[in-house]
Design a protein around this nucleic acid. Structure first.
Lengths: 247, 247
DNA sequence: CTAGACTGTGTGGTCAGACCACATGGTCGC
DNA sequence: GCGACCATGTGGTCTGACCACACAGTCTAG
């Protein structure tokens, strides 16, 4: 009886969100076809498509054309892409100052490192608790030691290492946020490299600092890990005088 | 000459993002009309609409019907809504565990409180630096002392107070993220209140803790503010045994 | 001359229908 | 038995149409 003054695509979005909340849709499930959904909700197919487009950008569904069990819109719940898109566009639209992105990354990553060190400490005191898995972090560090890496390759490995710290921590929100923060200023980071006095010196220093951070974590030194990460990130951004992107 | 294998709406999105990056579009500007944009980019109007819908959900534009200078899609760059939608849906789709949301909020808000205390300290040592503006925070605390508040009203004021701390800090990324985190678990928070042993006792304790946090900040005690926030948030969520939302 | 009503125009919002490329799964013919 | 073939259903896209809306200029009544 009540009128629905929402826009049609909002109706669709709310319906799908409701299905998710009630468990009628789970990751791996397929959404009904666009035509069926439109008929069920009494809206046009274009409105359904707008809602699904939003879900896709937000990292909730993946769409596939064709036929068979892998076709259609499938719930995936991968927040990384959505977070990246949001932050990248907000930086572009001047809603997110680059300085704030860097500061936030600083806070989150320092906290992650401290928490990892804390977990190592806990694992040492209580043998029944598991040590955080830092294997991936070590792998990325090793890869960064390879000679002849281009600057872009090094930056990619650097990003992978920093993200692997968050992954070792296991907090999905932090993982997605860190990925988004990093992605949002990727262009700025690449431009910053050009302003460095000496890339070989800087990359060597970065590698050493990475080893130091990992050592502090493995030594169960939360405060040390925290301050080392703080110095690592703030130092790098000060050095590159991060300001404008490389168009 | 090169083929564009992107989907049509991605072309539109990329075009607008490019205009933003190059400064051809700024906050306050109006996007070209949907029909004009479609013709310019050689795509259908529906594809343009899908891209604009994404921008709207991400908090980059606000759309208005009608005519005149306020009609059409206007760049606004308000990330709060987009962050909220992303996190709320990711929680619904089980991409973000509620526990991770709470943990992240803990980390961010504790860091914010510490930074505010640090700023107070800096302002005390260097008279040329400004004190953070905590006036809004005090206003919300005062409002929370009003008698006869319903639980929902109290929760709303509580959310406003916590957000005002981030606003005092001035970091746009943290402001938007905190708003999103809070919004994502709002339903869970309301459900948690029902599991409290005594709402009057809890609300009184929360008010006292808020005062304590603010006092630590104004006393330029970063470590104290950090630990008080930590205890405040983790204590509350432990007490409400935050698990399932109120359907 | 002024104030109000009126209408033209351009906006986003929505729908319906059509066509395409694609991937699958069954069927038919060898 | 097996490969070629085609019917089917999917998302992706475009077109055209209509609506409600809000403004701006015009027109009319006072």
């Amino acid at each position: 009886m009540t009128v629905d003054d929402r826009r049609a695509w909002e109706t669709v979005l709310a319906h799908i969100e409701n299905d998710l909340l009630w468990g009628r849709l789970k990751p791996g499930d397929r959404l009904p076809g666009e035509r069926a959904l439109a008929a069920d909700l009494g809206v046009g197919r274009s409105s359904v498509r707008e809602a699904i487009r939003v879900l896709e950008v937000l990292g909730l569904v993946r769409t596939n054309v064709g036929s068979g069990p892998t076709s259609g819109a499938i719930i995936v719940a991968l927040p990384g892409g959505g977070m990246s898109a949001l932050m990248r566009l907000q930086v572009a639209a001047q809603g997110f100052p680059v300085a704030d992105i860097v500061k936030t990354r600083l806070v989150l990553e320092a906290a992650v490192a401290a928490e990892l060190a804390e977990a190592v400490l806990t694992a040492a005191l209580h043998p029944d608790t598991a040590n955080p898995d830092l294997g991936r972090c070590v792998q990325w560090l090793t890869a960064m030691d390879a000679p002849g890496l281009s600057e872009d390759e090094f930056l990619a490995l650097d990003a992978a290492f920093h993200l692997s710290l968050a992954e070792a921590c296991g907090n999905q929100v932090v993982i997605a946020t860190m990925a988004g923060l990093r992605n949002a200023i990727e262009g700025y980071a690449r431009a910053g490299v050009a302003r460095l006095a000496s890339w070989p010196d800087t990359s060597a220093r970065l590698r050493a600092e990475h080893r130091g951070i990992l050592a502090a974590i493995e030594a169960a030194d939360p405060a040390g890990a925290h301050s080392l990460v703080h110095a690592h990130i703030s130092g790098y951004y000060a050095e590159t005088r991060l300001t404008a992107p490389a168009h």
